[in-house]
């Protein structure tokens, strides 16, 4: 019993310590931002490897999720003879929830894990130490550009996901199932509000971009510098990012639409 309490206590203290280390990374990365502005190529390179390389998976997923929404939505709405509302249903689900959340989950799996593995390996192969000994701050040079790249890429990726999803839903609903083209779009425009729905969705994806990138960078930077340690850190990035995204999504939804 006492040992269990002690274990719980140790776990709690560890968690607090890790959280502290993660929080300390933020001002350090922020301090590197000014230097980053003088070397935009560093940022572009990271937007390339984080945003551009995640683009295809997000685009494909967006189209298919939209098509499934179109199909499922049609069958349910048809029971109420309300197929014209299909556009609203597809767009609202995508813009408010699925766009930001699914993109963030894909991001954690594709870009987040890659970030953790890359930085963990840089640590394991002493590249980060090497930078320090060359009088280069590895946080400024390695973490800051990756952080901004992830933070900026996520809303763009989520927008692409939602837009392609709306098209996918249109393809299934209008082209395949014969929902009226006009009502698909007009009902949507009528019911989807720019600030309530679109902007709130963008805010969600900005928050998710921040959190996912932060978790990935922290896990990489503080990974145990062995191949097993980097592997564990990569797994933790994906699991932790996914859980945090889902939890935060509930919180944000309650705040925004509650």
């Amino acid at each position: 019993m006492v040992t269990m309490l002690a274990q719980l206590g140790r776990w709690g203290l560890n968690a607090v310590q890790r959280l502290g280390l993660a929080v300390l990374l933020l001002p350090a990365m922020a301090a590197g931002t000014v230097a980053l502005l003088r070397r935009p190529m560093l940022l572009l390179r990271q937007i390339f490897s984080i945003g551009v390389l995640t683009f295809s998976i997000v685009a494909v997923a967006g189209v298919f999720v939209g098509m499934v929404l179109g199909l499922q939505g049609y069958y349910i709405l048809a029971q109420f003879a309300a197929e014209e509302a299909l556009g609203v249903m597809v767009a609202a689900s995508l813009v408010r929830e699925l766009g930001p959340v699914v993109t963030a989950l894909l991001f954690a799996g594709r870009a987040g894990s890659a970030l953790t593995a890359e930085i963990g390996l840089m640590k394991a192969t002493e590249q980060l130490s090497g930078l320090e000994m060359m009088a280069v701050n590895p946080i400024y040079r390695v973490l800051t550009p990756r952080f901004w790249a992830g933070f900026l890429s996520m809303p763009l990726l989520a927008a692409v996901f939602s837009a392609l999803g709306v098209m996918g839903g249109w393809f299934v609903g209008v082209v395949l199932l014969g929902v009226d083209d006009g009502s698909y779009w007009t009902q949507m425009v009528l019911k989807i509000d720019f600030s309530d729905d679109i902007l709130n969705g963008v805010i969600k994806s900005v928050v998710f971009g921040f959190v996912c990138t932060w978790i990935a960078l922290y896990q990489g930077y503080h990974a145990i510098p062995t191949s097993a340690g980097v592997g564990q850190a990569t797994t933790r990035t994906v699991v932790l990012s996914s859980l945090v995204v889902l939890g935060l999504d509930f919180l944000l939804t309650a705040l925004m639409f509650g």
């Binding site: 840089m122 590249q127 000994m133 060359m134 009088a135 701050n137």
Partner: peptide, 19 residues
Amino acid sequence: LYRLRMRMGMLFQSGALLT
């Protein structure tokens, strides 16, 4: 400290080249 490190070189066991 960073200024001092500019006057020190270090050869890491693995080389620590930027891959």
